[in-house]
Amino acid sequence: MRSVNPIYHHSTQMLSQEQEWITKAKENPKNFAPLYEKYHEQIFRYVYQRMDDKQSAYDVTSQVFLKAIHNLKKFEFRGVPLASWLYRIAKSELNQSFRDKKAKRAINIDDIQVATFMEVFEEETNSINKKRLFNALKGLNESELQLIELRYFEDRPYREIGEIIDVKENNAKVKTFRALEKLKKSFNKNIRL
């Protein structure tokens, strides 16, 4: 069974503590500090997973927090961690950065993730299949790729994925399944590589 991300998912007590920090930060941006410390690494890793350059990833991460502080007054607490809102800002800042710098969108994958896909596709892990998988990943559209990354690269539960992409948990599950099906179809098309 997939474990629940302990940093992302909070107890009721932790959520109310977060709500308190948000209320204080709305009054004075200086009070955003504990939220910045709590989420900086998570947001950086999310950004860097999708970028090739480390320094650019740090810059985008800073931009995410700057935007968050500016727009915090519009934020309404709905019982989910602030992280889901920060991830949405991060996604938009990433797209902006790709447009401005004309940089390539990176897809970071390692041996363990390749092995996971081969297990799901019931295929052998070898160099040909690896190449087929890479080509299939490049063929996904942005939202499909995002779902595959959130679920299979970053190992997030559907509840968290739903909160990040702003849909219900069940809907996130269906969408991820469809993205995986498309990936599988594309992988099987690349059989002659």
């Binding site: 860097y48 090739d52 790709f98 390539k104 969108r105 897809i107 970071n108 994958i109 041996d111 942005e142």
Partner: peptide, 13 residues
């Protein structure tokens, strides 16, 4: 949007 596949990148501590 252009894409680049990065394989087995070192994980930042």
């Amino acid at each position: 949007m252009k894409r680049k596949l990065v394989y087995n990148r070192w994980k930042i501590p």
